[in-house]
């Protein structure tokens, strides 16, 4: 087994130990202490970036949800407002129409009663004229038939009694 028998040779152990220390020292100082921390830092930075990005994405998702919720609420509110405006307008229009109708009604009633008053006045005056004409006619008739002159007032009273029953 050369691994053991070669220890007898003067150069073997010294060379092996020297070279393993030298090469492993190179590996440790240049690779282990020089390069490894940088690679680990890169990995750590990437892990952190991924975690940050995930957190940001989650926050953005939550913000989008909140935005959607507020949008929904807003649209609900505006829809309700629009509905209210429509009903208000309808109510107002109905009330206006009612008011105008009432006014027109009142005007018509006024006109009607004025017309009725006119008619009754006209009838009254017509009656009075008929009375006086009837009284004159009655007086003339009496005078012509009997020659008796009837006083105008008497004739008028008699006509009135006949006309008004």
């Amino acid at each position: 087994m050369p691994q053991i028998s070669q220890f007898a040779e003067n150069w073997y152990a010294a060379s092996q130990i020297f070279w393993v220390l030298l090469t492993f020292g190179f590996v440790f100082f240049v690779i282990g202490r020089g390069m490894l921390p940088k690679i680990e830092a890169t990995v750590d930075a990437r892990d952190r970036k991924v975690a940050d990005d995930l957190a940001a994405a989650k926050a953005a998702h939550a913000a989008a949800d909140a935005l959607e919720e507020s949008y929904r609420q807003q649209s609900d509110a505006s829809r309700a407002a629009a509905q209210k405006a429509v009903t208000d307008a309808k109510d107002k229009a109905a009330k206006d129409a009612e008011k105008r109708l009432a006014k027109v009604d009142a005007e018509l009633a006024d006109k009607l009663s004025a017309a009725e008053a006119d008619v009754s006045a006209a009838r009254g005056s017509a009656m009075a004229e008929i009375e006086s004409v009837a009284a004159e006619a009655a007086g003339d008739l009496v005078a012509r038939l009997s020659g008796v002159k009837v006083a105008a007032a008497d004739a008028k009273a008699a006509v009135k009694a006949v006309l008004h029953g």
Partner: peptide
């Protein structure tokens, strides 16, 4: 009174170190 020599063993250790270095680069 010990001699330090460059040996086949040393050569392979140097090669391993250099390959490792290249790999890490």
């Amino acid at each position: 009174n010990h001699e330090v020599a460059f040996t086949t063993s040393a050569m392979w250790m140097v090669i391993a170190g250099l390959l490792l270095w290249v790999f890490m680069i």
